[in-house]
């Protein structure tokens, strides 16, 4: 910008003043822009607490329009506390799946984050009471057994897990026979579904220290019967238990608060195993 002419002193002064003016204007514009950006970020930070809940609510509203997306949104928006991160998220919404089982499946029903999945389960349910007692709430509000429940809808997949309440039974043969009766009842009510019989998840070493019947040897013994029942009925056996066990075949201590029922992190590992293998 240097003038090649020889400016007079007055002209030079004028040029210098102009340059200074331009720089001042530029500086003012930079300050102006910085202040605007600062107030925008301040507005965002201050409103963050109030907008956080609104975001959660709006993600639920969007759920009514598109449930598949909600599984993604909520899994990311609900992580504002100490909850462990889920292993997998959206690759399977289990909309065509039904889970049948005992209190371990109850834990899964509460923590799965899969609102489209169906759960027919109850605390204390076993392979005998599943058919003999009415422990499942049906769509009409009445109570029914597992067979009544499965008569209500047709599913693409049925995941079954029983056994932890039965490991103290004196005769494992009776357990196997009852399980086969249950599997056949499920097949009858769900002729087109892919049925998966899941192995019994082991217990922790601390639970095992309570003694009989709480031993992983019993879990292993009854799992032999679980597999035999699945094979005899021509349905698939899924070794969920081994997927969650440590190298010694125990449920890790951090996987459970009482040695038997899984914490959310391990319930999601269970779900992840199903996503990867079915």
């Amino acid at each position: 910008m240097a003038e090649q002419k020889a400016p007079s002193p007055a002209n030079r002064a004028r040029i210098q003043q102009n340059v200074i003016s331009v720089f001042c204007v530029l500086a003012a514009i930079m300050v102006f822009v910085w202040l605007i950006l600062s107030s925008v970020s301040l507005e965002t930070d201050t409103g963050d607490n109030s907008s956080n809940s609104a975001d959660e609510s709006s993600s639920v509203i969007s759920a009514d329009k598109n449930k598949e997306d909600v599984v993604k949104n909520d899994d990311s928006s609900s992580d504002d506390s100490s909850a462990p991160q889920p292993v997998t998220k959206d690759s399977d919404d289990f909309a065509d799946a039904c889970f049948v089982g005992d209190s371990r499946t109850v834990g899964l029903s509460m923590n799965s984050g899969k609102p489209l999945a169906t759960f027919y389960c109850a605390t204390g349910l076993n392979v005998s009471s599943a058919l003999d007692e009415k422990n499942i709430t049906l769509d009409n509000g009445n109570m029914g057994n597992v067979s009544d429940a499965l008569a209500q809808h047709q599913f693409g997949r049925v995941y079954v897990m029983f056994g932890i309440n039965e490991i103290g039974w004196p005769y494992v043969e009776n357990f196997q026979a009852e399980y086969e009766e249950l599997i056949n009842a499920i097949k009858e009510k769900q002729p087109d579904a892919k049925i998966y019989i899941q192995s019994i998840i082991p217990i922790t070493a601390s639970k095992e220290s309570e003694g009989e019947p709480w031993t992983n040897e019993n879990v292993r013994r009854f799992n032999v019967a679980v597999k035999a029942a699945a094979d005899n009925c021509g349905v698939e056996f899924l070794d969920v238990g081994s997927a969650l066990a440590d190298a010694n075949g125990y449920l890790p201590e951090e996987a459970s608060t009482d040695g038997v029922h899984l914490v959310k992190e391990y319930l999601l590992k269970w779900l992840d195993f199903l996503i990867q293998n079915t």
Binding site: E56, S57, S77, D80, P115
Partner: peptide
């Protein structure tokens, strides 16, 4: 652990149009 919001209706029968915020 926090219950996912899309599970509120399943576990509680509460729909999103009934609350401003919840946990």
């Amino acid at each position: 652990n926090p219950l996912e919001e899309d599970m509120y209706e399943k576990l509680y029968g509460v729909t999103a149009d009934s609350y401003k915020s919840a946990k």
